[in-house]
Simulated assay, not measured.
Amino acid sequence: MARGQENFTVIGDLQGWGYSNCDIRAYLAALDILQNNYPERLGKVYLVHVP
Rank of each mutant, 00 (worst) to 15 (best):
G18H: 05
I24Y: 10
D13I: 00
A2M: 09
Q15R: 10
A26H: 07
L47W: 10
L34I: 11
A29C: 09
E6C: 04
L14W: 01
K44P: 00
G12R: 06
R41S: 07
F8T: 03
C22G: 06
P39G: 05
R41T: 04
M1C: 04
N36P: 03
V10T: 02
P51M: 00
V50Y: 09
M1K: 07
Y38Q: 07
V10E: 00
I33V: 14
V48W: 03
P39H: 08
A2Q: 08
E40R: 14
G4N: 03
F8A: 07
Q15K: 14
R41W: 07
D23F: 14
A26V: 15
N37S: 15
I33A: 10
H49G: 02
W17G: 00
R25H: 13
C22H: 09
A29W: 13
T9G: 02
I24H: 05
V45T: 09
P51Q: 00
K44R: 15
L28R: 15
L34Q: 08
D23E: 09
Q5L: 10
G43N: 05
Q15V: 02
I24N: 06
E40K: 15
D23Q: 12
F8M: 08
L28N: 13
H49E: 04
P51T: 00
V45I: 15
L47R: 03
S20T: 08
V50I: 08
V48Q: 04
P51S: 00
L14S: 03
D23M: 12
Q5Y: 04
Y19K: 13
L31I: 12
V45R: 06
G43L: 06
Q15L: 09
D23H: 15
A29P: 02
I33G: 02
S20P: 02
G4L: 01
P51K: 00
Q15N: 10
Y38D: 02
P51R: 00
P39L: 12
Y19I: 10
G43E: 02
V45A: 08
